[in-house]
């Protein structure tokens, strides 16, 4: 330890005083997420609007946390819901059990279930943490508590994240991207 070192150290700290804090002021400013972040699941659709999910339950089989419940049903040929023979009549994910490992996404033969970006899912009741199809289809914006709050306040859902780009697997999913609104 020398006087020189002491003086130099003062210079170093002074330099940092004038640098920008690295803090992400999260609820005030969005968190920058990576494009392959594992967040709330998204059930994607084909470009023609049909659901990709064919109700095969492979995701449920692959799920290490037993978080997925699928109840398939036959498609009405006149008015199909999905692109296959069957579709998922009930598709539920228990977000309390889910470990966001993404194995369901890997198991899915049609690329129907993809992990998205929403992570603000904290809620008051167990039952509210079981997400159904109506909570996960691509056109849904935000999580259950976020949408509930938006309904009460009348303001649009404000996601707490921003991504550089939306990865192609999340076909049709709208997320706030860096440099440019949505």
């Amino acid at each position: 330890m020398t006087l020189k070192a002491l003086a130099q150290s003062l210079g170093i700290t002074l330099k940092y005083l004038f640098s920008k804090p690295v803090t992400v002021p999260y609820p005030d400013a969005p968190v920058a997420l990576k494009p392959r972040f594992h967040g709330r699941h998204v059930l994607t659709r084909h470009p023609n609007g049909l659901e990709k999910c064919i109700g095969c339950s492979l995701c449920a089989a692959a799920c290490p946390a037993y978080a997925i419940y699928v109840e398939p049903a036959e498609n009405d040929p006149e008015n199909p819901v999905s692109a296959g023979e069957r579709y998922a009549k009930v598709y539920e994910i228990n977000m309390l059990r889910c470990i966001f490992c993404g194995l369901c996404e890997e198991a899915c033969p049609t690329g129907a279930i993809v992990l998205g970006y929403d992570f603000e899912m904290a809620d008051y009741e167990y039952s509210d943490l079981i997400y159904g199809k109506e909570d996960m289809l691509v056109d849904v914006v935000g999580t259950k508590p976020q949408r509930r709050e938006a309904k009460i306040t009348g303001k649009p859902v404000k996601p707490g994240y921003v991504v550089p780009y939306v990865r192609p697997e999340l076909e049709g999913f709208k997320a706030p991207t860096e440099g440019g609104k949505k």
Partner: peptide
């Protein structure tokens, strides 16, 4: 606040 800025944080705000 100043200590926080020295440590590249924001401090109580």
């Amino acid at each position: 606040r100043l200590l926080a800025r020295f440590q590249v944080r924001m401090g109580p705000n």
